[in-house]
Amino acid sequence: MSGFATNEDLSDVLREALGPGYRITGVDRLRGGSKKGVYRLGLDGGAASSVVVYRWTSGENFWPATDEDDPADPFSPASGPSLFLSARRALDRLGVRVPRLLWTDTGNGAGDGGHGDGGSRDAGGPGGAIGVAVVEDVPGDTLEAALTTDPRRAAPALADLARSLDLMWRERGPHHDRVELLERGGTSLGESCERLVLDRALRDLAEAAGRDARIAAARDRLADHLRRLVARVAPRAEYSLVHGELGPDHVLIDADGRAVLIDIEGLMYFDAEWEHVFLRLRFPEHYDVLRRPGLDPARLDLYELAMRLSLVAGPLRLLDGDFPDREAMLGIAEHNLGRALALLP
């Protein structure tokens, strides 16, 4: 994979973001990111001992491009500085904790606050157009790690995450839209969340069936069951703010014990049931803290099967490229394949 940041690249970013007084003492490219590069920089010469750099460029994105990617599709790949900036503005306005922004450059001269607006940077190079953000480094573990190694530290963060989810639940919109698209005055595709989910699930099913004989053998039964499930869903005309991929690995814990949301580019107005299906998958032993009343059981049933199929097709698609943690992706696909088949009547 070409296009990873060099020390020279990061030194240039640091100079633009924080001025000439800082020196990089160490660089760590953090694991887990598949759509952007995430780098922790150790620093000397100023008040901050470290910062985190987000870097959006094709050379840092492991996902293969497709002809179906459409910014008006809420399920199109959520990657890019404009999505990040719109999401952090929305969450910050609600009082949901996100990493503090220090500096950003969208790659076309457009910036967002922090300690300074991003200026114009060179958008060329082997990785294509480059967008960059420098944010605070939230020290300590993810919530995922703390739930295992330090439950006493994890408990208040989990409660704060529930508070954040409640703030997002109460933030309503009249249409299902990515926050960034809404800021630009656009409107998302699709007549409803449930139809969007069905269409995506059928595409995921077709893709997974082409890659695994077990899914192929059950393809017609799975498609029929998806259509039965969507027929049970009653219409809805109001939507909540959802993260879209809120696992415990996408929550940091700050020094005050607060939950800090990261990987927020997919923030959108959508059915809260979509978020809660993912929360049930990723917080199996702790979901009771995050549970809320009033969710629609019919939507939960549809979205669980759709999400299982997505978590088969997506990891297998990612492995078409050179994503490094291949065993983990294969494990995710295999686990969710079994769960999807188990949902058949």
Rank of each mutant, 00 (worst) to 15 (best):
L85T: 15
D69Q: 11
E238P: 08
P315K: 03
L167G: 06
G173F: 10
L167I: 13
L43S: 06
A5E: 01
W103Y: 03
H115C: 15
P64V: 03
L311E: 06
A231R: 06
D256L: 13
D69G: 12
A272P: 14
V96Y: 07
D263Y: 05
R339D: 07
E183M: 07
L337R: 00
R280K: 13
L41T: 08
L316F: 07
G131A: 01
V135Y: 09
L198E: 08
Y287Q: 06
A217C: 09
V98N: 06
W63N: 05
L18C: 10
A154T: 11
K36S: 02
V27S: 01
R178C: 12
P156K: 02
L281S: 12
G294N: 02
F283C: 10
H276M: 12
I332H: 09
E8K: 13
G119Q: 09
H243T: 09
P345Q: 00
W169T: 14
A209D: 12
R93G: 14
Y39D: 07
A110F: 13
G257W: 01
R236T: 14
S79V: 12
G294Q: 03
P174Y: 00
R163Q: 14
H225Q: 11
F84Y: 03
R219V: 07
F62T: 01
M268K: 14
D254K: 15
A90M: 07
E285C: 14
A129H: 11
T149D: 15
R291N: 15
W56K: 01
H286F: 03
A255E: 11
A208E: 13
G125V: 00
R121N: 09
D177W: 02
L196N: 12
W169K: 11
G128H: 03
A209V: 07
L14K: 10
D117V: 14
N61L: 03
A157K: 06
R200Q: 13
S86W: 06
L102C: 00
E285G: 12
H115Y: 13
A5I: 02
L205G: 10
A306I: 00
L205Y: 02
L267Q: 11
A78S: 01
R211H: 10
L10W: 06
A223C: 03
A217L: 05
L182F: 04
